[in-house]
Design a binder for these strands. Sequence first.
DNA 1: TCTGGGGTCCTAGGACCC
DNA 2: TCTGGGGTCCTAGGACCC
Length: 397
Amino acid sequence: MPRLILHVDLDAFFAAIEQRDHPEWQGRPVVVGAQPGQRGVVATCSYEARRFGVHSAMSITQAARRLPPETIYVRPRMAHYARVSEQIMAVLAAFSPEIERVSIDEAYLDITGLTALVGPPEVIGARIKTGIRQAVGLTASIGIGPNRLIAKLASDCHKPDGLTVVLEEQVADFLAPMPFSVLRGLGVKTAPRLARLGVKTLGDVRELSLETLRRQCGARAGTQFYYQARGIADDRLYPDRERLSISKETTFPKDVTDPRVLEETLHWAAREVAWTARQTGHLGRVVTLKIRFFPFETHTRSRSRKVPTADERDLYRIAWSLLASEANWIGRPVRLIGLGLSGWSQPTTGQQLDLFETAETGRNPADKGLTETLDAIRHRFGAEAIQRGLHLHHQDN
DNA sequence: TCTGGGGTCCTAGGACCC
DNA sequence: TCTGGGGTCCTAGGACCC
């Protein structure tokens, strides 16, 4: 008995919210992401902007060259989008308790048992779209199929505001003409390897042996592609997945060589990560330092502790010592720095009490009141501002 | 041409233990 | 002196996704 999986994907989510909230921006190109002239990329853009060839992950410099002067550029308001996302998830939850949220604007539903109650898949999909429009005034694209892969590809099929149903007996014809670039897990590195084999469509991928695919793309990915081309994929949902790591990082507007700025930024990252960890009840054993040098050379260094922690002082101390122990890194221009926490383990009784206090009072017991934002650190690029920051920092200690 | 931030997963080598 | 196989943990890098 085949299952029926539904994939919901909000159309140009961030940009659509901004246009909804600013009616005068409707019909104009809207880019959510970095500001032109800054370092950064397009997070999402409206369909009016896509007509100029602009898309997510494109550098903002490149996007700005293509877009007309009347384009609106806005910084993401993530907390706001998260609230809208909650409203949408509530709409979905009213349809089926079997939901897996995969990102801020995407979710899978298992609607296998729903057809007997509501009607055919098309009707279920249409009702969900209506529910979302009534609740938040946004459009979504929906795909329905016998597994996650088909549902996802179907939702991409008729964007925006699409609704596509692919039944099991239609899967082979649905997939065969699609470009092989739709394969999940195939990116800029593996795509050229398949292209070299003369592959253009999923039908072509089907002609390749499992051996060839594994050799060209790696054991894991190759196997995945072999089955994906045949429409064979997971049809289960994985709700309530626990997150495995917490991290905070930032790219500097200009490469940094001043160690005091790196120090301050790691303090900020440690504070943010510690705060999130404590709020979500996580204590980690592994602290990871991430650093990116000019022009774009990225390294990570990690250390495992015996005792798990969510204390910003521990995070900072470890990250800084990982940085300081690399003799070759000293003095090199740094583009990005940050740190992460992972490797959860059960808290001790004392730690449980601290976590409980955080949850109850909303205060971090390790936080002595010096709350800085990323913007505040950015403002410290002037020598004067850096001095002031250090002064505050010393007072704090 | 320039490449954010927050994630997950995979690979591969080495240490260490049985 | 030469040398098994398996399992787990740790670490670093990198591909990919939204």
